[in-house]
């Protein structure tokens, strides 16, 4: 009986762990502390850009970047490399649009970032 439990139980347990690791992005991208709330930061930044508050937008973009930096190592085992690269690229472009005070470009880039964020770990 014990042998049967080991022979069947261990592989099944391993498979469950593997599936959890491969799907972990869905859970691990959710905020776990104070400074890793990516969605909240996206919304704040969206409002800043809409209202052309460029100084606040610059600071809030930095907050969004630091939140993203905290999440990245957690989702790396379940996300695509290109998805993560796209978010980092969008953050860099957002910096340029905010510096140039270009609302349309900044909003477009932020929407792209939001879309990529939604796809992570899906």
């Amino acid at each position: 009986m014990l042998r049967r439990i080991i022979v069947i139980g261990i592989p099944v347990l391993l498979m469950v762990i593997f599936i959890f690791i491969m799907m972990s992005g869905i859970f691990l991208k959710k905020p776990m502390g104070k400074d890793d709330h990516v969605v909240k930061n996206i919304n704040i930044l969206y409002n800043d850009i809409q209202q052309r508050k460029w100084k606040a937008a610059s600071t809030d973009r930095d907050d969004l970047e630091s939140a993203w930096k905290r999440v990245v190592p957690r989702v790396q085992f379940s996300a695509e490399r290109d998805e993560m690269n796209k978010i980092s690229n969008s953050l860099a472009k957002l910096d340029g649009f905010i510096d140039g005070k270009e609302k349309a470009g900044a909003l477009a880039e932020l929407k792209d970032l939001e879309n990529n964020w939604r796809n992570i770990g899906k």
Partner: peptide, 13 residues
């Protein structure tokens, strides 16, 4: 550091 963001080494992944 990849694209300015600190990531786990890809070898680990």
């Amino acid at each position: 550091i990849i694209l300015g963001v600190e990531r786990l080494n890809e070898s680990l992944v």
